[in-house]
């Protein structure tokens, strides 16, 4: 069973449909026990960082996530919140990964919206995916290159589009919206 953490993040329906298409059963839940006992956990995210962290805290999901031992996949804001701090609202994230989430400068259009190529791919999530593959991204804030970086892209400079530390994985792009390559990545996560 795959648990998708329900804390009011946007467009979890598309994620559920993507898992359905892969033939996998998923549940959207904020129930601590169900999440704790799931085979895999997906931590989605869309919207503002500050209200997202507040909701996680209210539902005591912040502490729970830190204690998860199964593979966890943070998507978009879900990946950013794995980090220590974000300039979006100047708040602390979950602190699993050391690093600060920054805002794109106004030298480029913000948000970055659309398909960008990903490179320097490392780790099991990218099995069968070649460097230069396109993924769909929508974001105004980014994670710089860190020692946990598993893939990068370029938008007014290089930044992280995938992170991994222990059982915690994160992707900045939306695999559920990234056509066949995104589906491949989700399937790789399910096989972990």
């Amino acid at each position: 069973m795959i648990a998708i953490i329900d804390y009011g993040a946007g467009n979890t329906k598309s994620l559920q449909f993507a898992l359905d298409r892969l033939g996998v059963k998923s549940v959207l839940t904020s129930d601590l026990n169900i999440i704790l006992n799931a085979d895999k956990v997906i931590f989605p995210g869309q919207g503002a960082a500050k209200s997202a962290m507040e909701k996680l805290k209210q539902q005591r999901l912040d502490k729970l996530i830190l204690n998860l031992k199964q593979p966890v996949l943070g998507i978009c804001l879900g990946m950013q919140l794995l980090c220590e701090f974000t300039e979006e609202g100047n708040i602390e994230g979950l602190g699993i990964i050391e690093g600060t989430v920054k805002r794109f400068t106004n030298e480029v259009k913000v948000p970055q919206m659309g398909w960008n190529s990903i490179h320097r791919l490392n780790g099991p999530l990218f099995d069968g995916i070649e460097a230069g593959a396109y993924m769909y991204l929508v974001h105004s804030y980014f994670v710089p290159e860190l020692k946990e970086t598993m893939a990068i892209s370029n938008y007014n400079g290089v930044y992280s589009v995938a992170l991994q530390k222990d059982n915690f994985y994160g992707v900045q792009f939306h695999p559920e919206k990234s056509s066949t390559k995104g589906q491949l990545l989700l399937n790789n996560f399910l096989k972990l």
Partner: peptide, 10 residues
């Protein structure tokens, strides 16, 4: 809902 179930692009 039917579109979201069928397609994997935004």
């Amino acid at each position: 809902l039917r579109v979201a179930a069928a397609i994997d692009i935004p």
